[in-house]
Computed example of a mutant assay.
Amino acid sequence: MTVLSMSRMEIDRVHVLRDLLAERIRTREAAQLMGVMTRQVFRLLRAYHAGGPAALISKKRGKLSNRSYPHGKPIAFYSDKHATFRVNKVGATGGDGMTQFGRALHELNIDIICANIPQAKGRVERANGTLQDRLVKEMRLAGVSTIEAGNAFLSAFMEDYNRHFAKLPFNDKDLHRPLAAHDDIEDAFAWKEARTVSFNLTLQYDKVLFMLEPNETTRPLARQRVTIYDYPDGHFAIKHQGRSLPYKVFDKLQQVDQAAIVENKRLGQILAMIAEQQKQMDMKRSNKAPRRRGQGQSMFKVG
């Protein structure tokens, strides 16, 4: 007797295909139950006819997947000339000459190569056009109507898409490099902006007033440049030469009351001025900073 080692998903597919062969369900229902496209149902059905349940066992079983190389990084990133990847403004003098995306790659020692020929840019655009059109239609045919079903559908779609359109590389060696000991993924992917500390040890970012805790480290930083780290999950850090600084937050988009002014005696005049100006100020946040939608317990409201 032959014993087959099958995953839960593969066993479920056997039951679905048996119901389909017995005409207890239709092809579209089978596709929904298995989370695949209709044409893949026919492919699985042919395989099941030819080899039985064993034909449904993944050929990748026992092989290393592409995700088995955790946090690998490429040598270079090939892109078009979009402003996400490079500073396109002629004569730009502010900042460090890099976009936020470019800075993140620079910190991880990854180069950016921008395409300069139509053939290279066209290949990307054709792929985007195919996905924007084909993916939507395939999901509609499979009856996908929720985010959860869409996420479950994507793995099968990617497998089928790559089988039809993927090209084998000239060299199949994985050239991704492991992260170096000093690579910090969380810091590299944070949105960073430089600010000047005032004499009162305050600085502003996205209409929020940050107040550095006065101590032997922060007092000498008056009129010095520090960096705001705005992380994707909504939390913040203020650093100077890589060292985190303690701070308090006063959100200028919240109403100021007398209690707040009394509590922050060191900033009494500043807070009183803010209280007066709030009546006329624009209560929307900057469009430049990253959106906080879906970040959980962030201090910022979505503008």
Rank of each mutant, 00 (worst) to 15 (best):
L4V: 05
V16T: 14
R18W: 00
R24L: 12
R28C: 01
L33M: 14
Q40A: 11
G52K: 07
S58P: 08
K59D: 15
K63A: 14
G72H: 08
I75P: 00
D80A: 02
T84S: 15
F85A: 08
K89M: 03
V90I: 11
G91Q: 09
G95C: 04
G95H: 08
L105I: 06
P118W: 00
G122F: 03
N128P: 01
L131H: 02
V136L: 14
K137C: 11
E138K: 14
M139K: 05
V144E: 04
T146M: 07
L154Q: 01
Y161V: 01
N162V: 04
K167P: 05
F170I: 11
F170W: 06
D174K: 00
R177M: 13
H182K: 06
D184K: 13
I185D: 02
D187G: 08
A188H: 08
F189C: 12
F189K: 08
K192E: 10
L201M: 06
L203K: 03
I228G: 06
Y229G: 07
D230K: 05
P232R: 15
F236D: 07
A237L: 12
K239Y: 08
K239I: 09
D251H: 07
K252L: 15
Q269N: 03
M273K: 11
M273A: 14
A275G: 03
Q277I: 00
D282K: 03
R285K: 11
P290V: 07
Q297L: 10
K301C: 14
